[in-house]
């Protein structure tokens, strides 16, 4: 298939960016979107143009490193999938594909399509863990946890931290991301001890880093490559309000 690519190019964080239009021919429909980008970069290299910078690593949909806002949607036109697993058969021959970086104050652009998501690390550093040291913990089977609770915690825990929720939210809200960790650890007995502290610390860090406020549109769960439900946001709200009430 032949394609036209409208790609955001930006030299570095401070530079002003703009779209560039590239033509690309003979792409097979079985290649993945990122393989198509590889072919584009090889072509640019041969033309003496600097290749397009974009984040990617595992290319099997789990590391959360790939991003890209493709044709108006985070991770492109397929659902429950990351960009690296998106395949070209989802596009039409001759189509113009618009590729943009995640856009959010919380995710400043590093170069071209690459953004800085350390804000997510910072939010988790504020409290997204159970405070136990290595060693000296009880036997794994000492505390039974019902299968339903464990499954629900696992649903939340599948978050890959890619940032699609922020990218797609019209408010750039990071609530789905924050709620995943808060919900997972609030559900499990191991995490309950510091559930209040965790919810408050993580929300406060999230607010500090310039993300918007959740207005419950539910767009995030539609674009989430792991299909995580916004019911976890309800649990985060509950944890946060309860924590405040206890003060």
């Amino acid at each position: 298939m032949d394609l036209k690519l409208k790609i955001w190019r930006q030299k570095d964080a401070k530079a002003k960016g703009q779209f560039e239009l590239y033509s690309l021919n003979n792409i097979t429909k079985d290649s993945s979107f990122l393989e198509m980008m590889d072919v584009l970069n090889e072509q640019l290299l041969s033309q003496g143009i600097e290749p397009v910078a974009f984040d990617h690593d595992c290319r099997e949909g789990i590391c959360g490193m790939c991003s890209l806002f493709i044709n108006g949607r985070a991770h492109g036109p397929d659902t429950e999938i990351t960009t690296c697993q998106l395949h070209m058969r989802k596009f039409k021959d001759g189509e113009t594909i618009t590729v943009e970086p995640w856009r959010s104050n919380g995710f400043p652009i590093i170069k071209d399509l690459m953004v800085d998501r350390t804000a997510y690390d910072k939010i988790l550093q504020a409290g997204g863990y159970v405070s136990v040291n290595t060693g000296g913990v009880p036997d794994a089977n000492a505390i039974p946890i019902s299968k339903e609770v464990a499954d629900e915690a696992m649903d939340a825990a599948t978050c890959i931290g890619c940032g699609a929720c922020v990218a797609t939210c019209k408010n750039s809200s990071a609530m789905l991301f924050v709620s995943n960790k808060v919900s997972q650890l609030a559900l499990l007995p191991q995490g309950k001890a510091e559930a209040s502290r965790r919810a408050k610390a993580m929300v406060s860090k999230m607010d500090e880093l310039g993300f918007g406020n959740c207005t419950n549109t539910g767009a995030c769960e539609v674009e989430c490559p792991k299909g995580i439900s916004i019911s976890h946001i309800a649990r985060l709200n509950r944890e946060f309000l309860m924590a405040t009430a206890k003060e």
Partner: peptide
Amino acid sequence: NQKARGNDGYA
């Protein structure tokens, strides 16, 4: 919320 998107919005 509008500010949170940043200076460049999506095309």
